[in-house]
Design a protein around this nucleic acid. Structure first.
Lengths: 223, 223
DNA sequence: GGTGATTTTGCAGAGCGTGCATTTTTGCAT
DNA sequence: ATGCAAAAATGCACGCTCTGCAAAATCACC
């Protein structure tokens, strides 16, 4: 059912596969070195050496040294968008988004070891945490478009030319807000879950509680 | 003996005033130069020269070159927190937060010219926009603490030692989520308002619509 | 004016990031 | 297989960013 030639994990040519492997090797080396020696004591030279490539090649894959610590998976956004479009039509936008993200996060939880190291590195380096949040937000615009498409199928708005009614503004604000809030929800869930790692609450529970709070309009909790 | 030299705008000593002036001069020079020549064609040397200080002094005020474009006002977080604590007790947490932020944003709208340049610079440099959002979120932890304090006054939780009931977890998750969502709300409001600058909708209208959507639980908009 | 604390500054050095030309690897057709 | 063109990796040079450190300038207070 799936096309094998897409940008998904099973790439076609040897070239694409090798590029993917090199990128993954660099990212993993960066995270492991940072977890051991501290993020800002890890030079590009060390990362490149650990991955078996030259320093110059590192910069062919990442725009900056910090990006190696931040970027986890480039096409996670693509998968979420596709899942959102394929979601049952009777779900509310918030519900559909919740399900799409929950599926993706369950997938990410599988590579627990590397993901945990990642969290550890970001916790020790607030500077990088900030960048990580920014990366998470990079896909936000694309996500907002898909949400808008889901709400009003086919009615793609083009630039400023638009019906003068207040409705256009409303449906343009809503998808952006929903996309942004969803990203925030993921982040808060992860943070909260990491802080309470000793109690072993499943991540999915935290995640669903966050969405329940959002769906309820963030009411004041019972005293 | 009384230290009039708080961190508020009316500092006492000549020293503090001069530091504040230097910092402001550097930030303003950075923004103006970036608006003219593009953010990444502005060197620290140029910024320092425009502000009349040495390059080394620049780094005494900002941790990185990009921070000069990003940091607007250091103690805006302090004012929001104080406003939140002083808010009427009959407001819901979300309402209290909305009012505190609205007041602060109305204040910021006063220095429109510099703020507008700022927005222009960030629009042209997505790299910096990311940092700006991160900076906005830096206060999030502090904000969450104040929200928790407002909800359950005096009941400061200390570490992991805590009543085993599920209540503790709920009131720890909620403030974080609320603080994070509030930051997101501000960001989305600003972005949306900037995109529709030609229609002159007041910023306050966008802002209140965002909070209305949040309070309603982000329902699917009417078709 | 003298004194101590704070700030500014210059300097040296390590690391980051980019452009360019060269070499190596890969995909494909012969 | 072998040659060829596209893509990727590499080395090198260069400018910019950022950090200690110590000396000089400035400020607050007596």
């Amino acid at each position: 059912m799936h096309d094998m030639t897409g940008k998904d994990s099973a790439g076609g040519g040897l070239r694409e596969r090798k590029k993917r492997a090199t990128r993954a090797a660099l990212a993993e080396a960066a995270v492991r070195l940072a977890a051991e020696h501290g993020a800002d004591h890890v030079t590009v030279e060390a990362i490149s050496a650990a991955a078996g490539v030259s320093v110059r090649t590192f910069f062919n894959y990442f725009d900056s040294r910090d990006d190696a610590f931040v970027v986890v998976d480039a096409d996670v956004g693509v998968r979420v968008r596709r899942a959102l479009l394929d979601a049952p039509a009777d779900l509310t936008p918030l519900e559909a988004l919740r399900e799409a993200l929950a599926a993706e996060l369950a997938e990410a939880e599988r590579q627990y070891e590397l993901w945990s190291l990642h969290a550890e590195v970001l916790r020790a380096a607030p500077h990088l945490l900030v960048r990580s949040l920014g990366a998470q937000m990079a896909d936000e615009a694309g996500l907002a478009e898909v949400i808008a498409e889901r709400i009003t199928p086919g009615a793609r708005e083009s630039g400023t030319t638009q019906s003068p009614g207040g409705e256009g503004r409303a449906i343009a604000l809503y998808p952006r807000l929903l996309a942004a809030v969803a990203g925030t929800a993921v982040r808060v869930s992860v943070q909260h879950w990491c802080d309470r790692q000793d109690e072993d609450v499943p991540f999915a529970d935290v995640f669903r509680e966050v969405f329940a709070l959002l769906a309820a309009g963030l009411p004041a909790p019972a005293r």
